[in-house]
Design a protein around this nucleic acid. Structure first.
Lengths: 189, 189
DNA sequence: TCACATATGTTGATTAATGAACAAAATCGA
DNA sequence: TCGATTTTGTTCATTAATCAACATATGTGA
């Protein structure tokens, strides 16, 4: 692809993310973004229909990074459970500022919704892979694990990460292991 | 000016400077520069005729920064003598890696030549401003001060800056003050 | 409430950057 | 030495980015 496109998108996204960290979403203008990205205002419009589109794509990018970054490395999924979960929390820790902003912002429900949707999908895939059979309704179980995981993450982030990522990984894992082989809901196939 | 031009020039210059620091000038290719700058090879040729042109403009940029950075701030030139000279050495210290490379490179005489030329010009301007009248030949005096200053700088840089920039400024100033009011040869009007 | 400023989208002409292709020169390795 | 590879410099059609100029909408302070 034409490298100009990549450069422009990157510059705009970086500028937007930077502005998100230092002010409320409602206060951010396209003018500001274009100025900070050192890009013509028209270029912003050529890539994103409006600022909400920009927000959604920004959320998408970050969440994709989160889920991608936390894939188990090794071919054996059994051992990588704790490792990948630990990596997940470490990644969250490194980007805590961003996720904290996103989770605490009242106006941005899009982020929570998208995170929840991705988590649900991830849990479903995990269940399919490990083939768990219980008498609990599958749909409910998915919601249960997804919400539980997100709840722990949200609490951890918004409370300034009071425990280490490794400790969090251990705790969450032991909670999940009580339900057999559901290891890392963040892991997608 | 079209901001695309500025961006491309900056990216190319940054890439070239970076490569200069980590390998010999002779080993640097246009391909490398374009790749590191993330720019089409043709773009490099549209801004610079060849790699020597690129080198010269790079030298010019850095030396301009050096001389600009060392202008006396205050309106009264009398006090600013030591301050600006100290700033000069501090600036050199911060960019020591680059200047050391440039001064030590056997193949690049262009840098030394250009530095010498700018220094001569600067000393001449200083002499004109302070209106020194001695029986010493003006031309010879200019060469004397220029070479003396460059010699000190070169020794300081290539010997890993054994003294602080403030100490260097003091010493050089006291040497120059023996010839009346010639303060900071690096200062241009 | 009403100017006044700022932000939002849109349009169109212009321009710089792009990728691909090319021939020629230089470099390298065997 | 010779063949293969890389680099160099150039050309050209295509395309994304630019700037300027709009009209409209949205605040914001007096």
């Amino acid at each position: 692809m034409d490298r100009r496109i990549e450069k422009s998108r990157q510059a705009i996204m970086d500028a937007f993310t930077k502005l998100m960290l230092e002010k409320d979403f409602e206060k951010i203008t396209i003018n500001e973004i274009a100025e900070l990205a050192n890009v013509n205002r028209g270029t912003v419009y050529s890539h994103y229909v409006d600022i909400f589109d920009l927000l959604n794509q920004c959320i998408e990018n970050h969440l994709n990074k989160l889920f991608e970054n936390c894939q188990p490395r090794g071919s054996d999924n059994s051992i990588s459970g704790k490792d990948s979960l630990c990596k997940t929390f470490t990644y969250l820790e490194q980007n805590a500022f961003f996720y904290s902003k996103m989770l605490m912002s009242k106006s941005i429900t899009a982020f929570r919704n998208r995170l929840h949707a991705l988590m649900v999908k991830s849990v479903e895939e995990q269940l399919d892979m490990n083939g768990i059979n219980t008498d609990v309704n599958r749909e409910i179980m998915v919601q249960y694990f997804a919400s539980a995981t997100i709840g722990v993450i949200e609490w951890w982030i918004t409370n300034s990460m009071p425990y280490s990522s490794e400790y969090m990984a251990e705790q969450l894992l032991s909670l999940m292991e009580r339900y057999q082989n559901v290891t890392d809901p963040l892991t997608r196939s």
